[in-house]
């Protein structure tokens, strides 16, 4: 009877493992990564998945084997010595004697075993830890974020102000005029000043939208994140971006898309739609990228979902920006 428990453990653990194997094929997996961050984040995810998966299978297998072999028999007697099993026979046959000798030395000395299973995981864990450092710094350190281009050959990132409130994202873009100045005039102290003031001072001709975040492909976007009421979390799962917004603080977030999902609906019109897949040149449900709130922020938290529109080119973005400006009421001051 006792041996059945090891089989129950084994079957359950195999089922768990299989779920991880099958899920990617039915679409229950990481959403497509479409920013420069996604490559490093996903690589590290698979790296950790590989290592933890290996140790998961190793430890659970050992546990099930021990539970099976060292089960007390119904007579409650000691387990008798077993004939060597398949793995032991294979090991005996194929391992060079020198290695076998040193392994036997470790296995026959509990203190050596303990040293081995302390030092080896320690090395692997440190390796995992230090593998993360650079990716994290690139994504999050403010010192590493793209900034206003000082020289001619660099480019200036798109700057957008994102203000969260219960339960929407208020998104503020520079006017098209200002935007063109940012992008074309480099190394100009005046523009630098204007660029840095954008997040702090609202201008009357700023373009304001709710829950619609527009950027364009292959160009870094820096978002100045703040909140008017409670903590929210700015979450772009496809871009592998997540950052809480804190009351009383402004926190910059950046990413560079590597795929676009937004096209002009008609050649000369100003209707733009997302959900376009440039690989298949067709509309695709999976190409609708959400901008959701990831931190509990009150009863409307679940529906605090906006959308991310990635245009194909800077020109497309500019066209879109102008089309929104045209629809806005003229500012009273003008």
């Amino acid at each position: 009877m006792g041996k059945w428990w090891s089989i129950l453990f084994g079957v359950t653990m195999i089922a768990c493992t299989l779920l991880f194997v099958v899920s990617p094929f039915v679409g229950w997996w990481l959403p497509e990564g479409v920013s420069t961050h996604s490559w490093s984040v996903d690589l590290l995810f698979y790296f950790i998945l590989g290592i933890t998966g290996f140790f998961f299978i190793l430890t659970e297998a050992l546990m099930c084997i021990f539970m099976y072999r060292y089960c007390s028999s119904e007579k409650a007697g000691r387990t008798v010595a077993h004939a060597p099993g398949f793995f032991v026979r294979t090991y005996n046959k194929w391992t060079p004697p020198a290695i076998k000798g040193s392994i036997a030395k470790v296995l026959n000395d509990p203190h050596k075993i303990e040293m081995a299973w302390t030092v080896l995981p320690a090395v692997i864990l440190l390796w995992i830890a230090f593998a993360q450092v650079d990716a994290w710094a690139v994504i999050k350190y403010q010192s590493r974020m793209p900034r206003y281009a000082e020289k001619n050959q660099e480019f200036t990132p798109l700057q957008i102000d994102v203000t969260a409130r219960q339960w929407e994202w208020r998104i503020r873009y520079p006017s098209s005029e200002r935007f063109v100045e940012w992008m074309t005039r480099k190394g100009d102290p005046e523009i630098l000043k204007d660029f840095q003031s954008f997040a702090k001072i609202e201008q009357k001709d700023d373009v304001k939208l709710v829950n619609e975040l527009h950027v364009w492909n292959h160009h870094p976007a820096v978002l100045q994140l703040s909140t008017r009421d409670v903590i929210h979390s700015f979450n772009l799962p496809h871009m592998r971006v997540k950052q809480d917004s804190l009351p009383g603080k402004q926190i910059p977030v950046w990413f560079t898309p590597i795929k676009h999902n937004t096209i002009r609906l008609s050649a000369d019109g100003d209707v733009w739609i997302d959900g376009y897949n440039p690989d298949t040149k067709a509309q695709d449900r999976n190409q609708i990228w959400d901008l959701s709130c990831a931190e509990l922020c009150g009863w409307g938290h679940y529906r605090m979902v906006g959308r991310l529109y990635v245009h194909e080119s800077q020109q497309d973005f500019l066209d879109w920006l102008k089309s929104v400006e045209a629809k806005m009421l003229p500012p009273r001051a003008k």
């Binding site: 961050h37 984040v41 590290l44 995810f45 830890a129 993360q132 990716a135």
Partner: peptide, 8 residues
């Protein structure tokens, strides 16, 4: 625990 993976 791995900060970049934790972002997601």
């Amino acid at each position: 625990a791995a900060t970049p993976v934790d972002i997601f």
